[in-house]
């Protein structure tokens, strides 16, 4: 087994939202480390800063203070353009509400990150092939030209997983990926994520459901913007 590499190394992350006169410290010195290949869950009560942490980890916003190394690169002080590049080339997002482009086919949604990938060496045909292949891999081979409104919630979430994977990210971030799904579709999505994890993808997922968290290797619990405790999940789900 090769020596594992640190994908996420966040230290003392602080995020302050300025709301007129008073401020909200959504993150208040959270530190988090994730190894390559790990499947980790973030739990915590509502308002504890889970989404804020995901957005910082996902380079959708910069922390107010603290250090954040992603895949060995200091990203806490990058500008908008560089953050966009990181999101494009190193990260894949899975949102609770899917966030697919409306009236746009699954295929077009999945190929979108490739459009913005300046580093991609793929030709247009190869990009198209890749998008189609990934849709096939998430079980939507027969629906690649369906638009989101023609797909079930579970299928839409599969499209968004395919989109998250298309640029071969070093890290996949999922904010309550099963939050809008019934338990059966939720289980299917989790099986898919688990499968990705087995193939080596590093995944960090927010959930408030202990059963969902149980799919992962490790859970950290947030409270008031800080990591309150950490639990190794021994058990495996099939």
């Amino acid at each position: 087994m090769k020596k594992s590499k640190v994908i996420i190394d966040g230290k003392n992350l602080v995020k302050v939202y300025q709301m007129g006169d008073f401020e909200v410290r959504a993150l208040n010195g959270a530190s988090i480390q994730v190894q390559e290949g790990e499947f980790m869950a973030i739990m915590g009560p509502s308002g504890s800063g889970k989404s804020t942490l995901m957005n910082v980890l996902g380079c959708l916003m910069s922390p107010t203070s603290g250090e954040y190394f992603l895949d060995g690169e200091d990203v806490s002080e990058l500008n908008k353009v560089e953050l966009a590049r990181i999101r494009n080339q190193k990260l894949g997002f899975i949102f609770q509400n899917y966030n697919l482009l409306a009236r746009t086919s699954a295929f077009q949604n999945v190929i979108l990150p490739l459009f913005y990938n300046r580093a991609s060496l793929l030709t247009e045909e190869e990009q198209q092939e890749k998008a189609a292949q990934i849709l096939e891999a998430v079980g939507l081979g027969d629906r690649i030209y369906h638009e989101p409104q023609e797909l079930s919630g579970g299928q839409q979430q599969r499209v968004s997983i395919a989109r998250a994977l298309v640029n071969d990210p070093v890290l996949v971030l999922a904010d309550e990926p099963t939050g809008n799904l019934d338990s059966r579709s939720g289980a299917e999505i989790m099986a898919l994520l688990k499968d990705l994890h087995r193939k080596g993808t590093t995944i960090v997922m927010v959930t408030h459901d202990p059963e969902i968290a149980a799919y992962t290797d490790r859970t950290i619990h947030l409270l008031d913007g800080k990591v309150a405790r950490e639990v190794k999940n021994g058990k495996e789900h099939a």
Partner: peptide, 8 residues
Amino acid sequence: IRQSVGAT
């Protein structure tokens, strides 16, 4: 959405 997948 475009920004989240890397549009500058």
